[in-house]
């Protein structure tokens, strides 16, 4: 038994457990905290997969930036009004059934190897060393994928402007939407 198995199962269990908390807990703050925990667990798994840079980004962007944004919004909107969440959605049973069936199918595919993946082996381990290099990652990002990278920056700019505009909407403007709804 390799020690890495231990770590894998540990982090995987933390990730799945935290994910379940996010989906099941009634307190939105607990949900947010569980989500942070899950992000860290995933980051650890990324490290195990030799993706150091992505792991760092995961912690910085997801756990750092995005979650802070979530918490800001949760606190901005009077917390007591959203804290205790009504939960049972009418379509929940159906959703759970379908999701479980879908998961069963996916796992069946993964385990039975119907995806047509060659079994991982020595070559993967050898390549893993190379793929872990942040330097190689940067070189690839700024050469082959330079254009998508620039597009992504434009996307972020657009999202920023959009978010500012949306968050600034006056009450009347939003109210206009609801009036249309009435008609």
């Amino acid at each position: 038994m390799d020690l890495s198995f231990l770590f894998f199962y540990l982090f995987a269990a933390v990730a799945v457990g935290a994910a379940l908390v996010v989906v099941l807990n009634r307190n939105i703050l607990h949900c947010a905290m569980a989500l942070v925990l899950m992000f860290f667990a995933i980051a650890a798994l990324f490290l195990m997969l030799g993706a150091e840079f992505i792991a760092a980004v995961q912690v910085l962007v997801y756990a750092g930036a995005i979650m802070v944004l979530f918490l800001f919004v949760i606190l901005l909107i009077q917390i007591d009004r959203v804290q205790m969440l009504r939960f049972a959605h009418r379509q929940s049973p159906l959703v759970v059934i379908i999701a479980v069936l879908l998961l069963a199918e996916l796992l069946y595919m993964i385990i039975r190897g119907t995806l047509g993946i060659a079994p991982g082996g020595a070559d993967a381990a050898a390549a893993g060393a190379a793929s872990g290099s942040t330097e190689a990652f940067g070189a690839l990002l700024y050469t082959t994928y330079l254009f998508p990278f620039e597009v992504a920056s434009v996307l972020l700019l657009a999202a920023m402007i959009g978010a500012i505009l949306l968050a600034r909407l006056d009450k009347e403007e939003v109210g206009g939407v609801s009036r249309q709804d009435m008609s």
């Binding site: 959605h89 009418r90 379509q91 959703v95 379908i98 999701a99 069936l101 879908l102 199918e105 119907t114």
Partner: peptide, 26 residues
């Protein structure tokens, strides 16, 4: 519920579609 206007119902339809596609594949 099919035409409720609730986004989640429409998302459920998507999930059903994904489920159908995966089932077809399998």
């Amino acid at each position: 519920r099919l035409q409720t206007g609730f986004v989640q119902n429409y998302a459920l339809a998507m999930l059903l579609g994904i489920f159908a596609i995966v089932s077809l594949y399998l």
